[in-house]
Nucleic acid binder design. Structure first.
Lengths: 152, 152
DNA sequence: TTGTTTGCAAACGGTTTGCACAACG
DNA sequence: CGTTGTGCAAACCGTTTGCAAACAA
């Protein structure tokens, strides 16, 4: 997380952008809750606890910035909110977003890694001449807990 | 398409819903342009050509209805519009949505079928005890035409 | 200092909703 | 006829934007 922050500051400098308290705090909140899939509003509320002066618009603008710098990923669960999570730690761009399991019962989101899609991408490349650069996979179903509860 | 319409009318009747011109027309437009991934606004405009009295709110309400009846699928390309397309013709619910290839250059959307995900789902079931019911896969990349143009 | 960034509030835009009228069954 | 569906316009709500003040470099 401290590593993140340094990389972030360097990235800002490199792009002629200023290092502000607000920007650092947005990144911090996302770094400190990986796998939480926070909405803009949630990020805003979390920062406000220690830094009440921040504005929601700034959070949105910073999220935009972090997306452009490839530091965070956007997830859309089609529930009316766009969510964000800290991206891959390594520098390799355009590589291996993880996938999401969404419980249709309790709404919880689980992440997982799998390289099975590599083969799918190869197949598409061959059959359709479509060069796959990135992918997004969402699986909907019932999580362990909800399945268990159902049996009662 | 005429088959669709009959099945639709039957479904409406079965659920105590009324068969209206507006409902039939929304289904018709979607049936007549499979693989077009129309937005609500586009559906509205298409119907207005022959039926100018229709209201946009009715289109939205009918889309909602068609989703609940499992006759259409929702696709979100994260471009600010939700899109809709006619669903699987066969009656089998919760089975085999196709996947989407989205060209990051020209925005065109291609559909394809692949059952490779079945294995992925099995793997998840085993490892995470998560029961997968449905999935959504989006692959972003460059289509044949855009790749070709780039070489010039 | 000086150009970038921020907070505020107003605007935006796709979607939903309340209501009186229309029309399916 | 009674109940469901429709069109219209207003409301909604997450997100974006314009602008003057605040601040990093």
């Amino acid at each position: 997380m401290s590593v993140d922050k340094d990389r972030f500051k360097e990235l800002l400098r490199k792009n002629g952008l200023k290092i502000t308290n607000q920007r650092v705090r947005v990144l911090e909140v996302l770094s400190n809750s990986p796998d939480k899939h926070l909405t803009a509003e949630e990020i805003y509320e979390l920062i406000k606890v220690d830094y009440p002066e921040i504005g929601l618009a700034t959070v949105y603008r910073t999220i935009q910035l972090l997306l452009e710098l490839n530091l965070i990923d956007r997830i859309n669960l089609d529930d009316g909110f766009v969510r964000y999570e800290i991206g891959n730690q390594d520098d390799n761009p355009a590589k291996h977003h993880h996938h999401h399991l969404i419980c249709v019962n309790c709404g919880k989101v689980f992440s997982f890694e799998d390289d099975l899609l590599d083969e799918l991408e190869k197949r598409i490349m061959d059959h359709l001449s479509f060069k796959v650069l990135d992918h997004e996979v969402k699986l909907y179903g019932k999580c362990k807990d909800c399945s268990a509860k159902e049996k009662e």
